[in-house]
Structures are given as C-alpha cells and as structure tokens.
Amino acid sequence: MERLNDEGQWIVLMGFLVSVGIFFLAFVLSQSTLVGQTTSDAVLEFPKNEIRDYRAEVIDLVKEDKITDAIIKDLKSLELHRNNAVVNFTYLGEITGSPGSLYDYTKINISFNNGLTRYKELCYVPKKK
C-alpha cells in the first residue's frame, strides 16, 4: 500500500466540514414544524380589541350612570351576535370613599368569554364626589 499523502489536509477537512454543515442544516430544516397556525392568526383570533372596547364602554356607562336593563340586554345580544362572546355585567354596589377623599366608587364585575379567551374583572369605577 502506498504511503498516505498528507498534503492538502486543510482542504479535505474544510470540504468535510462544509458537507457536515449542509447535512446539519437539512436536518434542522426538516425538524422545523410547518405551521398552519401562524402568529398572525393567533393575533387575529385573540379578542384584545373586543375586550378593551367592551370594558371601556361599560366603565364609561357606569361612570355616566347610563346603565339600564335595556342597555345591558343590548350589550349582551350585540356581543353574542357580532363578536360571538358571552358577556356579563354585575353591579355590586356603591362604595363611599373615606371622608376627605375625592371619589366614591361603584363596584362592578365584568366578564367576557368567547370560548377561546376568558376575561374577568372586578372593577371599582371612580365617581367624583
């Protein structure tokens, strides 16, 4: 057998490293899961704006004393028909601020549920004395 020719070892080594690199990349590529459910889908699905809108509206109405039975019915029915959400609103009473404080509070419970996301808040709505 001929004696091994050990010239050009670096070139051989680099070639080998490159091929291992390509192999590794291919492996990583095949492991990366394909997603039909992308981040943007999750963002579109998450009802952030609906919850914020509902919450802001209810708090505004409570602040301005505009809540009536008809309004609550409107809210429930519209949220169900247009946003597929079951919403609830419970009035938990007035809380008088301590003497000298600037605000009284109305204690309310807000909930929003569209099957995917559930939001519940116990909220003290301030009202100027």
Binding site: N88, N113, L116
Partner: peptide, 18 residues
C-alpha cells in the same frame, strides 16, 4: 386536529355552539 370553538360559560350557564 383542530377543534371548533364551542364553549360553555359557567358564569351565566350559557352553552354556545357554532
């Protein structure tokens, strides 16, 4: 593989199906 969005809201005992 992926579920529909049926849900039961136990605050109001409401069952919603699509």
């Amino acid at each position: 593989v992926a579920k529909p969005r049926w849900f039961y809201d136990d605050d109001t005992d409401t069952f919603v199906i699509f």
